[in-house]
Design a binder for these strands. Structure first.
Lengths: 150, 150
DNA sequence: ATAAATAAAGACAAAAAAGTCTTTTATTTT
DNA sequence: AAAATAAAAGACTTTTTTGTCTTTATTTAT
């Protein structure tokens, strides 16, 4: 009937993968264009453009227009955590919201799964906060991981 | 731009809340109708009907038509875990899927966050599997938790 | 038997997410 | 300056999810 709900939105999945790709290719003066990014991570090009433009507006990635333009990062951007990317694209409901969607859910007026869920969320957030783009740079360069769909 | 992605779908949130309400009101020979359920958990009535009919078809809850009809549970249903409800409505991607949406992601060909993510998923699944409807019955009857939106 | 109550089923509508296309703007190269 | 390249912006389309409405089937009470 419904089926297949994932942790992150498609936009967020593409966003994380694109950021990892840019981190991998980002060296001194190297920029990578949307076409190449989309090809590298196997995502729909115009949708990818929208997501990256959003991330660029929010300062998570740098870009310049024109020939030899494209997206790139400096040392500071490599320290961006997965949590920051997720928050920028999907918001913070995954980390802070009530599992049952109850607005008024809090310590004083908890939903049934409040305490169990809080632990999971905290855990998830901690993991994503502790994981920065640069942590993957080397292993991505060595080809130990893949970023393609299929 | 996008914002506010939650862990479960709306259908799943309503489904869990409705199941908790039925568990709470379900005593010998007591049935509860869709109208009352929707009111109790503050969900859209016709949408609630669709979700419950789906759960009923899948055997997670019992129902009978006609006067004094409605939804109810027996002892066995009270042992249903939150994981079973989530899987029935949202599927198992949350527990088994790749965080970055990569179909080919596995131990041999892992995505960058594969290992970190696996731990979270396992944790989440374990928590939801370990939590059954009957675990909330008493505290719900005592009014210690709430199931309303606002 | 008939009427009333209720879930089941399925068509329909609205909103949100995902994806595409076109035009504009900025930059570089010639 | 002009042409080419690439991101930015925004309108548009499609698909999925959420939500609504109407009709049908089943059960109970009268």
């Amino acid at each position: 009937m419904f089926e297949t709900k994932e942790m992150f939105s498609k936009a967020c999945e593409y966003g994380i993968r694109a950021m990892l790709h840019i981190a991998r290719t980002s060296k001194e003066g190297t920029r990578v264009g949307i076409r190449e990014i989309a090809k590298a991570i196997d995502s729909p090009e115009p949708f990818m453009a929208k997501i990256l433009q959003d991330l660029s507006r929010k300062g998570l990635v740098l870009s310049i227009k024109g020939p030899n333009g494209g997206f790139y990062m400096d040392e500071i951007h490599l320290k961006i955590s997965l949590a920051e990317i997720v928050t920028a694209i999907d918001g913070d409901q995954l980390f802070n919201g009530c599992g049952l969607g109850l607005k008024a859910c809090n310590e004083r007026k908890p939903c049934p799964i409040h305490y169990e869920f809080k632990a999971i969320r905290t855990n998830l957030k901690a993991m994503l906060q502790a994981t920065a783009l640069e942590d993957f740079k080397e292993s991505l360069e060595k080809g130990l991981f893949h970023l393609k769909r299929g």
